[in-house]
Design a protein around this nucleic acid. Structure first.
Length: 401
RNA sequence: GGGUCGGUGCCCGAGUGGUUAAUGGGGGCGGACUGUAAAUCCGCUGGCUUACGCCUACGCUAGUUCGAAUCUAGCCCGGCCCA
């Protein structure tokens, strides 16, 4: 049983929009006095195996609903992933194979476990939408298509833009919002969560439910987390993200430099810190943010360690005595090994050419000492063991046997 | 189905026979600087276990040429207009 303040927090904290606004009183009442737990839907597009902080925003909200005694219904869009959500895309998305989807879904769970409650009975339901979409009767498909007009579809910003610019829109892409909406019908969703870009799709679900004689779901939209570049939404393809499984040091180093204008929103969306307790100094704030978030995923001890190490690197330019540097085993490296090849083999550089360039640019260091010869060669692993290889200011590896 | 325009490196976009890994911009990466950053300046930005060498690249395939991203033919894909 929830108190008034708690439902308020559930529906407002870090929320961009909730609709329809007319039903809010009733929703609030149902949340606080459930004669049955509400079914809170979150669709997951298993197109990418790695989750990042952007996903955490929605998952965190979902967790709040779970903690309030409601049921999280996770829909793995294994069928819809094969169409590809056109939302936010200026072109068609690649279609995924079954194997890729399954693999992605599995890794998704492993990561979502850090945030969602997987253990309390009744708090989580997982569904794959291929279960009902795979053999959908053509009659149903036609009914779905008949529920919307081309004009309505083109009113959706993404489609409209593409149409205007003359980039191709394929007919099957129109099906995506309808199928996502149909998921809401099948699972009898009460509330659907999503980023603000999901508004259209969630509204379609609401409409469809009404057409199928169900009460229409509420939509609860969460702000898109802006990525580290400070402009675009956090996403893996833009490489402006912090992964949920990243090691503490790289997590910390990324977060301690989120652009000043984003720091407050990161606090609001990703932590439970009261903004009033934050230090006024912008640099201190960044550090606090980094520390907090790393603590959530790695625990306070490792977060503090990462902070210390990051200070050493930034202030002293030193990589000596670091604790939290990721390790790389030399056992698969063939000796003798020249520097440029070592960089590629460790993955610090993507190619030999990149390695050459980085060395020539003065970006490569070993134990803090600048290396200027790409062909500098080591004869045995022993010469490199326990030394720290560094490219630029962000990428480090400790070489171990 | 017909007409027409077009498909160049991460993106945009020059280049219409010959120093061609392909001008320029964006983005990215790195260096200097700084509150880490941002702004600014500078450098890099196809690949190769070893690089004044080799390989792969301008939708695909086959040709013409000493030589093609650039010419020809066929094919594939897209935009727009007409049906």
């Amino acid at each position: 049983m929830l108190r008034e303040g708690e439902t308020d927090r559930l529906l407002r904290q870090g929320v961009a929009e909730i609709f329809p606004s007319s039903g809010l009183q009733e929703l609030s009442h149902r949340l606080a006095n459930p004669h049955r737990p509400l079914r809170v839907k979150l669709g997951i597009d298993p197109t990418r195996p790695d989750l990042h902080l952007g996903h955490a925003v929605v998952l965190k909200k979902m967790r709040q609903f779970q903690d309030a005694g409601h049921t999280a219904v996770l829909i793995i869009g294994d069928f819809t992933a094969q169409i590809g959500d056109p939302t936010g895309k200026s072109e068609m998305r690649p279609r995924l194979s079954k194997e890729e989807v399954e693999y992605n879904a599995k890794t998704y769970f492993d990561q979502a476990r850090q945030i969602l409650d997987f253990d309390t009975p009744g708090r989580l339901e997982v569904k794959f939408n291929s279960e009902w979409l795979n053999n959908l009767d053509l009659g149903v498909v036609i009914n779905l298509l008949a529920s919307m007009t081309v004009g309505q579809m083109l009113a959706k910003e993404d489609f409209g833009e593409r149409y205007k610019q003359g980039t191709p829109i394929y007919l099957h892409e129109f099906l995506y919002p309808l199928l996502q909406g149909y998921d809401s019908v099948v699972i009898r969703s009460d509330i659907e969560l999503g980023g603000t870009e999901q508004k259209f799709n969630i509204l379609v679900g609401r409409d469809l439910q009404t057409k199928y004689g169900q009460p229409g779901q509420f939509g609860l939209l969460l702000p898109l987390l802006v990525g580290l570049d400070g402009e675009k939404k956090m996403s893996k393809s833009l490489d402006n993200y912090v992964g949920l499984t990243e090691d503490p040091l790289s997590m910390y180093s990324k977060l301690e430099k989120v652009p000043d204008h984003l720091v407050d929103s990161y606090f609001e969306l990703l932590t439970d810190i009261d903004p009033k307790t934050l230090p006024p100094d912008p640099r201190q704030k960044q550090k606090r943010l980094a520390l907090e978030i790393v603590s959530i995923y790695h625990g306070t001890d490792r977060a503090l360690q990462a902070q210390q190490d990051a200070e050493k690197i930034v202030l002293q330019g030193s990589t000596a005595d670091l604790e939290s540097v990721p390790e790389f085993s030399l056992k698969d490296i063939k000796f003798p090994v020249p520097l440029f090849y070592l960089l590629k083999a460790t993955g610090l550089c993507k190619s030999n050419n990149e390695a050459h360039n980085q060395i020539n640019n003065g970006a490569v260091r070993i134990d803090g000492e600048k290396m200027i010869d790409p062909h500098h060669t080591w004869q045995t692993p022993g010469e490199l063991t326990n030394r720290v290889l560094q490219v630029g200011k962000k990428k480090f590896l400790k070489l171990v046997p």
